[in-house]
Write a protein that binds this DNA or RNA. Structure first.
Lengths: 186, 186
DNA sequence: TTGACAATACCGTCCAGACGGTACAGTAAA
DNA sequence: TTTACTGTACCGTCTGGACGGTATTGTCAA
């Protein structure tokens, strides 16, 4: 709340995400981000007074987006009221598909200071706890969760290890497991 | 082969791995690595004439270790002649347990240049191909593979998301699936 | 209505420090 | 004599960040 002028901050964060993705995580300098965002370095430092704050901003924006999507999907007042597990799987798979660029900035943050990613880890922990609470089959939850983590990891490292058909099979299986159905054997 | 004097190179690589782990991936400078290895910067540059070569060395050593372990486990002439899938799962789980430090240097390499990790991705691709060729159930192979990738990822990012019991359950399930048995539901 | 002031949103410059890498002279063992 | 270093000095580049300045847009008392 209380955000009247998101325009510049958003532009900066978007620029950082793009830059990390297509120039490599190593080229995420303040000057380069500023240039990409179309402002000066001084201007960037006005909005994010240190590089650490920029990194925090990236993590927060990333988290906020996913949380908002999850909330929108599962909150009955806002839409379909999908169950948590299905929404989590569906949204995660969307984030892992070919149309979405990987979050390469994560490597920049990690190289800068691993602690920057603590909020991300804590979020994942809370999410896994919620998933466990929502379904009786622990092994099922863990399998689904870690397969998705694996897909994320593959995406992040830019490794395309599966064909389209294999990916479809994985997706179908995960969605089936999320709904408590039998996995597809093919 | 043709390696008569592994001592210094090994010391340097080990120092880099340790340093990335306990001072963070961002502090992997040549000077720092040399100091940790107990040699001078000039001495380091004698063995690895550039930082890029050091990174390549890290990737190669990492790969060589895992390949050697896999080979030793599956080659009947050398030992038990374990089947590929079981050996892969078992060794991967060992690499992911609490006693082994995460390969934090991967983030340094990624920040430097994502291409450094190409050999790693190619190795994974070949491994997955071999696993697919060895078992009839594609969905099973993919599930096992990506759960392990997910565990690796969690380890890498230093997120401890599961309890000891949960981890045991995952391990049992993976080993069971590797042997074509039914997964444990608990 | 106007003049004084202040907050916002930047720009452009400068600097100290870190880093990768080079050069080179010396050394000690095999 | 070659191999395998050590140690020091140095260079060019990049980077985070501090800082001073500026244009624009309110705000508000006289």
């Amino acid at each position: 709340m209380a955000k009247k002028r998101p325009s510049s901050k958003h532009k900066i964060l978007a620029a950082a995400v793009e830059l990390a993705h297509d120039s490599g995580p190593g080229s995420l300098s303040l000057e380069a981000v500023a240039k990409r965002a179309g402002i000066s370095k001084g201007g960037l430092l006005y909005h994010f007074p240190s590089k650490a704050k920029l990194m925090q901003g990236l993590v927060e924006a990333y988290l906020k987006d996913f949380e908002a999507a999850l909330d929108a999907a599962t909150n009955p007042a806002k839409g379909k009221g999908e169950d948590l597990m299905s929404a989590y799987v569906r949204l995660s798979l969307i984030a892992c598909d070919e149309t979405h660029p990987p979050a390469a900035w994560i490597f920049s943050a990690m190289a800068e200071d691993p602690d920057f990613l603590n909020p991300l880890n804590e979020f994942r922990r809370r999410l896994l706890d919620r998933l466990k609470a929502h379904t009786p089959d622990l092994a099922n939850v863990l399998t689904v969760f870690f397969v998705i983590e694996g897909l994320h990891s593959m995406k992040l490292f830019g490794a395309n290890l599966v064909s389209d058909d294999e990916r479809k099979l994985i997706d179908q299986n995960l969605l089936a497991m999320a709904q408590g159905r039998k996995p597809v054997i093919r």
